[in-house]
Design a protein around this nucleic acid. Structure first.
Lengths: 344, 344
DNA sequence: TTGAAAGCGCTAACAC
DNA sequence: GTGTTAGCGCTTTCAA
């Protein structure tokens, strides 16, 4: 591998001149520039990342922490990560993936203490997330994908769950539905302190009451069986329910299945809308495919990287905080409310 | 951040002694060792990765290239990546994720030319994969997850697709099935040169004929609708089919759906087995859940990292080539063949 | 407009 | 068993 001094020798200039040609912070005569560029091409010279990193205090490496844990990784989360990777690359940085436990703060300290990374992206943020403190005291630039309960000066990019609930309710209201059920997610121990589910639920409630629709809420675990039970419960509580929302895909698959079993056609007799906060994989696998309201992962991931780089480059005045609108994708599972329901 | 010289000063030793305490390649008196360790703790010293990297020619960073492309990323692939990340961490290395196009060889050259990474893991290997040449001529250690048509001296870890086909056939044969259908995956343009689908299909064919079962093959695209059509086609060709295998999840969901529609109960009337080469997400979302034969992603990912580190450390005599057995997970979609089928 | 030289934090001979 | 020192490849002041 050619080094800067090889290039300098070949171009008959000093070593520093080569650097300045590359960085462009100093005027260079076009004659010298040409010689240097020719030499670089000739030797197919690529600056050495570690040499540069040592000297410049900038490594060009960002890390993303996605604690895989028991929940496993979801396709939605993956979308964020891929988007972040691509945006980082576009901006000339590399992205390092770390999947260790969320509470392994020592490892986080070690990772940042090594001076390996310029900044960190944090995912799966808890309401009270210790990682924030660790990074703040270590003075390591970071951006949350998600939010703590009180982000204060922390920079974040998050899906706008309020608008997510609003979009879902407005969608069904626009289709004429008046009695709507919400399948909420019963909190597993591992969910404690994880905010999105609560936010979505509150938003759905608020928007439903603002729109004057009757909302019945039942809760289900993340299994199909539980969704089947939820459907039965809904129908016994409010047989006139014409639309079911939920943010728990597996349960919604169970709901659709139970509906079919009960002779209830989708979307003719029943509308189903999935609010994706996590998985995002079942929508295309049901018959009919599920209408979803889902975060725009590619926007969130890329924006988080932009913010992180802005902070690293000291271009950010205060904390950078953004909520990104979700996207409604109307597939086959939602349609106009039945006459019958209206006539009632 | 404390540096090595801070530690040396505090412990009243030379700077190199600090290094040797850390690396252990030189005998150190216990008295000195204690002083040094105390100083390191006191200053909460973490060796600087870039300093070490520059001096030692070892960066402690590995890269994994997963070309996301149009196919998107699958959960199976993700399992490999997460397993690799965790194994790398366990071995004291970091893993950098790169998702650029498979044919962006210049970017690959740049990545490795920067001296950033010690080695590379390649995923989604094509039959003729240019990346192999690029890395070989650049003398960058690498390991394939998958195989080229002729891997020769390249190290790889791959799922054993022959055993995968064999396991699936043996499973249904063991359950008494004698007429079996195989839903093959019609090759999309983006699949050209991607080997696993072919390997599985050949293995299924060979094992079926060895076991003396009748095998009818139909092909389907990766959609439910296509799977529904495939079911119809199978039933018109061989109405006595009692088991359907496939490696295309979406199509299998369609098959199960069409079967239900035709009054065909699973697993009582029909057994369905999914050979997972890619997605691996639908199995838990059908009713009943699908029996699968799937690669052991956590084994493959970890083994690939071990091999890569062995090559980097020059511990590998020749190419390291491994096939990893798949795992049959019997869920609800497979069961004994109906009497009726046997009586025939 | 260009060159010289002092580091960045660490490793690994080479001395003693 | 321990210290000294010459780099690793690059950036960036300071001089010219």
């Amino acid at each position: 591998m050619a080094t800067r001094s090889d290039v300098a020798r070949m171009a008959n200039v000093s070593e520093s001149t080569v650097s300045y040609v590359l960085s462009g912070v100093r005027p260079i005569s076009s004659e010298v520039r040409q010689r240097v560029e020719a030499a670089m091409k000739e030797l197919s010279y690529t600056p050495h990342a570690f040499g540069r990193g040592l000297a410049s205090k900038r490594t060009g490496i960002l890390a993303v922490h996605y604690p895989v844990g028991e929940r496993g990784i979801t396709l939605t989360a993956l979308e964020y990560i891929v988007a972040a990777t691509e945006q980082a690359r576009r901006q000339g940085s590399h992205l390092l993936l770390w999947t260790g436990p969320i509470d392994d703060l020592d490892e986080l300290r070690r990772l940042t203490g090594q001076g390996l990374v310029d900044g960190v992206l944090l995912m799966e943020i808890w309401a009270h997330d210790e990682r924030v403190n660790v990074l703040e005291t270590a003075h390591v630039p970071f951006v949350l994908i998600g939010r703590t309960e009180n982000p204060q000066t922390a920079s974040y990019v998050d899906a706008d769950f309020v608008s997510m609930g609003r979009q879902a309710i407005r969608h069904v209201v626009g289709l004429g539905h008046e009695v709507v059920a919400f399948v909420s997610q019963s909190a597993a121990p591992s969910e404690r302190g994880y905010g999105p589910t609560d936010r979505v639920e509150r938003a759905v409630r608020a928007e439903a009451s603002a729109a004057g629709v009757r909302l019945v809420t039942v809760s289900a675990r993340t299994t199909m069986r539980s969704g089947q039970a939820a459907f039965a419960e809904i129908m016994s509580q409010r047989p006139d329910t014409t639309a079911i929302l939920g943010m728990n895909e597996q349960a919604l698959v169970g709901v659709m299945n139970a509906a079919a079993g009960a002779g209830c056609a989708i979307p003719d007799d029943l509308t189903v809308v999935s609010l994706c906060i996590g998985a995002g994989t079942a929508a295309e696998l049901t018959i009919p495919a599920m209408t979803t309201v889902a975060p725009r992962g590619e926007v969130i991931g890329a924006l988080a990287i932009d913010h992180l780089l802005a902070i690293i480059d000291d271009r950010a005045a205060g904390p950078l905080q953004d909520l990104v609108d979700s996207e409604l994708i109307s597939r086959g599972s939602s349609g106009p409310a039945r006459r019958r329901a209206r006539d009632r």
